[in-house]
Design a protein around this nucleic acid. Sequence first.
DNA 1: GGGAGGATGCTAACGCTGTCAACATCCTGC
DNA 2: GCAGGATGTTGACAGCGTTAGCATCCTCCC
Lengths: 220, 220
Amino acid sequence: MTRPSYHHGDLANALTAAATQLARDGGPDAVVLREAARKVGVSATAAYRHFASHGELIHAVKHVAADRLAERMKIELARTQPLPDPGPEAVRRLRALGNGYLRFAVDEPGLFRTAFCNPAAAQVATVEIMSVEHALDMALVDPFRMLMETVEELARTGMLAPERRPWAEIFAWSAVHGLAMLLLDGPLQACSPDEREQVIARVLDGVADGLVPPSPGPRA
Amino acid sequence: MTRPSYHHGDLANALTAAATQLARDGGPDAVVLREAARKVGVSATAAYRHFASHGELIHAVKHVAADRLAERMKIELARTQPLPDPGPEAVRRLRALGNGYLRFAVDEPGLFRTAFCNPAAAQVATVEIMSVEHALDMALVDPFRMLMETVEELARTGMLAPERRPWAEIFAWSAVHGLAMLLLDGPLQACSPDEREQVIARVLDGVADGLVPPSPGPRA
DNA sequence: GGGAGGATGCTAACGCTGTCAACATCCTGC
DNA sequence: GCAGGATGTTGACAGCGTTAGCATCCTCCC
């Protein structure tokens, strides 16, 4: 990676890309500024012309990771046929989003972990009280919006009863995110692929049942 | 913290305690071996007589954190009155466990994060395929056992239908653990205490509904 | 066209970390 | 009472994030 001129021309992006690769391979802790600079063929301090700190570099990677997560969710959304009835269609979409989320976590554990890491935990001294919307860190705004819209649709079609509406997105997100964590860093690390499929299906069932009361009789 | 004799006498425990305090204040990343040694009043390398590596020190803290989590869950279990009927009693217990789990996460974020961190992510080169039981890392075995027993009880009393039994613990754990993560590192960081109570209650409701189909009619 | 000056890169250095090797001290069992 | 293992110390190394000061290049304005 030798560059012809003294100036790189696109260092910020190149560093972000290199750092993203590091995150892919080893999660957020593997994102080391000097290594990224080395990969790009530039001195470590050159990075400081484009990122104020190590934390900012990680934050850039976090953005990339969150975008890829959103892409994966979109792909899963399009992978199965829409249903004619809006109610079941909303349920299908919710499942698809959860599926995409979990597939991304399993396929790209390093990026997934980075998307949810807390860069500069003690750096930003005084965390201002802000709305949940703003606290979303912007990076994860796309995946969250997709979830919001689907839950909203679920409520609009009547599948999600009004008394269950409050915090319904958070419940769904919690279950799916928690499973991802347990699969990646927790007690489910050593699951066989087969077991993984089962537990993913079970949790998505549980989410659906927690939002849409199951009809009487045995489930499909 | 001056000690009378050349030998400390209980360095391993002292280091673990100091490291635990660091974890309390700043999470797993704040557990730095040299700082723990400094606090105890001992040279950094003395730690290596008791811990093979930084990772092992963190692992010790992880154990402590997991134990405190289990304690908190037990406390919450005893905080409300048992119900006469075994079915509702099992449901009460499940809720209490989730509540304790989440309170601990909120009250001791540093320890909670440490309990679920992945020390020496790349250290243990070849992760042998092992049972879920063994993958549990032992540290978290107590909280998991409590959950298992309660879900088992739920099944025994018939509250949890047989077709919903498989992976039911994991579903419950996922939802609660995911919420903890979202509250600590995720988009719910900036929740007001009031909102936090609401969302905790909602997720516990969702877990219950995902396991025990709600009876028809409006919920309490 | 040719400087002025900002943008971008470099080297050197600081303090911090985990870790190792070699040495010092203490305690315990024969 | 002493040999040897257990435990603690000093010194050093490489790697990290970060800063200061210097070098190079590009752009824009006269």
